[in-house]
Write a protein that binds this DNA or RNA. Structure first.
Lengths: 219, 219
DNA sequence: GCCTTTCTGTTGTAAAAACAACCGCTTTGT
DNA sequence: ACAAAGCGGTTGTTTTTACAACAGAAAGGC
């Protein structure tokens, strides 16, 4: 667990809390390290979640497969990101999505309800943590709205441009790397892969962008 | 302001707080009542928000119009619902959407940062309120995910069924009333109104559902 | 009551997406 | 090194959607 303190320190959840204190809190909160091989499930749709999870190594996809095997990718989780916060509230029902390891990954689980429900004076970081949680989920909320904006576009081209230009803004560069291959990007944008591939090549031929694998450059 | 205490008391934000205490808190937080006529803007895209807002009368739409006048409705806000929570975090940027009064409406604005940033021992409800805020935004997060699920469907029919059946589940009945007219529903689901109208009638003819105005019954 | 505006459904056409099948290249595993 | 699996691009066909234009019904204003 100690190895990951530097990562944890940089997460939104532990913002403003020192490394020493994090270690104390983790044990107090019953933190648990779990490892996954590529392709393994971290969480499954329908489960009830009692913990909040931080990814400390690897990468994950939050996704959903329907009856016919059509996959929809809700979001990509990178190192240092939190997930599961939306299901910590008492009335929140079962998980709506699967969480799956895209590569070998390591997570930290811990029972955030202890923070939320125990006497608030028990630990001086309770308040900080609740507030951090609030900011984290607030940010996730805004990013979901932005994803809705991409998906709401009517054509594949518009969806691509909406997504790629937001990534460019986030990464502060016209040259970006995305965490998806073609199929995954299509599943993320809810379009057909071949149609999307086609559109990408048209856009490239028109001089709108260039790409190689998962690196894109916008002009 | 007093007139709306019963409404406020039933909101998620003041859950677990008595009417008397709410009144005290409101003045302490600089709560402000604002009224809007049908069609007026409550908030505008690009603004920076310092307050959290509760709708106590009427109804609102959170929406966005692009350069060409295409409207996209993000969500409908009913009496007792909170909005703006996602923009209270310090690093959250400008508002991504407009908020507009669908009918004559009344809101309560108040500076929630006072709760989040002042010494937490100043008021015994600070912690309750931060926690309530957290649960509220957590629920909104889940509902955004569900909306993404509707929009992610590939055909208009699937989008309609996804949306309507979720409403039926929420309203716990096969017979539901939606807060949208046809154009608004189309803007909510990001499809063309006439195509949607067409599809609805086809579905009716096939015996999948029945409707009259904004009332729908699923079979 | 009458006029105007808004709302909903209808139709036809053009554009776009989904779907399916296939190919060559790369990566992976043994 | 070889076979198998995965990935990305291409093409043709079918389905679906967007778009535009219009008409009748309903609602709202004066």
């Amino acid at each position: 667990m100690k190895d990951y303190i530097p990562v944890l320190k940089r997460t939104k959840l532990f913002s403003g809390i020192g490394g020493e204190d994090i270690l104390t809190m983790l044990s107090c909160l019953g933190a648990e390290l779990r490892t996954y091989k590529k392709g393994e499930y971290v969480l499954r749709q329908g489960e009830h979640l009692r913990d909040i999870v931080i990814l400390v190594e690897g990468s994950l996809h939050i996704q959903k497969d329907d009856y016919w095997g059509n996959r929809s990718i809700l979001r990509h989780i990178g190192v240092g990101e939190i997930f599961g916060e939306a299901y910590v509230a008492p009335e929140s029902g079962a998980l709506l999505n699967d969480v799956i390891a895209v590569e070998n990954s390591v997570t930290v689980f811990f029972d955030v309800k202890r923070v939320l429900t125990t006497c608030t004076s028990a630990c001086r970081f309770h308040n900080t943590m609740v507030q951090n949680l609030f900011f984290a989920i607030s940010e996730k909320n805004r990013s979901l709205v932005q994803k809705l904006e991409h998906i709401s576009r009517r054509t594949i081209r518009e969806k691509l441009l909406s997504y790629l230009s937001e990534e460019a803004k986030k990464q502060n560069s016209g040259s970006i790397t995305i965490p998806f291959n073609r199929q995954q990007l299509a599943d993320y944008l809810s379009v057909d892969r071949s149609a999307m591939s086609n559109e990408l090549c048209k856009m490239r031929d028109e001089g709108l962008l260039a790409f190689e694998k998962n690196r894109f450059r916008l002009f």
